[in-house]
């Protein structure tokens, strides 16, 4: 199983280490030529969505990646990655891949002083640690979206088909369960 990790900016190295620890083959996407290699799933890491969105477009990655997602390649976005997947942003004019029909609020918990750690239920996994760093949350989700986790009533994890978006960072706190969940989606188990 080969997972491509978008590596234009952000904490892609942490995702790579975690995916490798679960037995996946991993490679980085930094420019157009990297997309010629076949992959079974794609990870969009945390970072700054404005930077990643701009680099995706200017490095010619945006359209080919969007086509792959629309063609059914499983994709997993954390934090900035969730913002890239969302159909609508409530406090930003940008829209990126538009493949997860949810409305996301950027920097929903404010500045760094609002960053926090929680432990909550994740549907199908159980109680897991969640690290929120200047995080977004999902304000609303369309009916066909499966809400997987909430913190204080706000949606922090959602899935529709092969598209999984979460607003926290399992890649930095050592808990591999959500990555395992994603690899199960890639393998068609979940």
């Amino acid at each position: 199983m080969t997972i491509a990790v978008l590596a234009v900016q952000g904490d892609f190295a942490e995702h790579e280490a975690m995916l490798e620890s679960l037995g996946a083959q991993v490679f980085e996407i930094r420019e157009r030529a990297d997309l010629d290699r076949p992959f079974d799933g794609l990870v969009l890491p945390g970072g700054e969505s404005t930077v990643q969105g701009k680099l995706l477009r200017e490095l010619g990655l945006f359209e080919p990646i969007r086509e792959k997602i629309l063609a059914g390649t499983p994709v997993f976005g954390t934090c900035a990655g969730l913002i890239l997947l969302a159909k609508r942003l409530s406090n930003d004019d940008n829209v990126y891949f538009d493949v997860l029909p949810v409305t996301v609020r950027r920097n929903a918990y404010g500045r760094q002083l609002g960053s926090f750690y929680a432990e909550e239920e994740f549907k199908g996994i159980g109680k897991i640690p969640m690290t929120f760093i200047r995080a977004p949350y999902i304000e609303s989700a369309d009916e066909d979206v499966d809400v997987l986790a909430r913190v204080d009533g706000n949606i922090v994890a959602a899935r529709r088909g092969n598209v999984l978006g979460i607003s926290f960072h399992p890649e930095v706190d050592g808990d591999t369960s959500v990555h395992k969940y994603f690899l199960d989606i890639v393998q068609g188990i979940k």
Binding site: A7, Q9, G10, G47, S115, Y117, T131, I133
Partner: peptide, 19 residues
């Protein structure tokens, strides 16, 4: 458990690969 230091190190991780 809330560990500000971990959260603060995590923010720097999000800035990686950036300017």
């Amino acid at each position: 458990m809330e560990n500000r230091y971990e959260l603060n190190k995590n923010l720097a991780q999000m800035l990686k690969g950036g300017v």
